[in-house]
């Protein structure tokens, strides 16, 4: 592949953020926070009626999008802001845009704007990532 400044990265779409997945992430994170497990706990906090996806799970979608967009690349840095929640059953889409290219053919580097958007609402993660791509031969 030959990325160009301004290119939009191929999106990773999650059609249905699964409450079952949140239960699994509660185990990965050793975090039994009921906001991720029990809709009644979410309602009691006045945050809505559906369980809330873990922030790192949302970030994992962005990372997997980058890995899919640039196979074999190494992620060097990632800097993100968590600007909103993702709720159980929502559809989200991770994507990004190429901002800078540098480093030459042996170790080409790329800087991208990245985001995760809840399809019906808007951005939930925004940020930037830098990657070192496989050498161009």
């Amino acid at each position: 592949m030959n990325p160009m400044i301004g290119d939009t990265l191929k999106a990773l779409r999650i059609a249905d953020v699964s409450p079952q997945g949140m239960k699994a992430w509660a185990g990965f994170l050793r975090d039994p926070n009921p906001l991720h497990l029990d809709p009644r706990a979410v309602a009691a906090k006045g945050l809505g009626e559906r369980v809330i996806n873990q922030g790192p799970a949302n970030l994992a979608y962005v990372i997997s999008m980058l890995q899919s967009a640039f196979p074999g690349a190494r992620i060097d840095t990632l800097e993100v802001r968590y600007v909103d929640n993702v709720f159980g059953g929502e559809a989200v889409e991770a994507s990004g845009r190429v901002l800078e290219l540098s480093g030459g053919d042996d170790a080409p580097q790329i800087k991208c704007e990245v985001w995760l958007r809840a399809e019906a609402r808007g951005p939930v993660i925004t940020g930037t990532a830098t990657l070192t791509l496989a050498a161009i031969r």
Partner: peptide, 28 residues
């Protein structure tokens, strides 16, 4: 492997972990 399944991606074949483990490993 289980974490990758929740995202709908295949785990890497070279033994590398999903990079989101930067967060999980440090937090735990």
């Amino acid at each position: 492997r289980a974490l990758c399944a929740t995202i709908g991606v295949a785990p890497a074949e070279d033994g590398s972990a999903h990079p989101i483990y930067f967060y999980i490993a440090t937090q735990i």
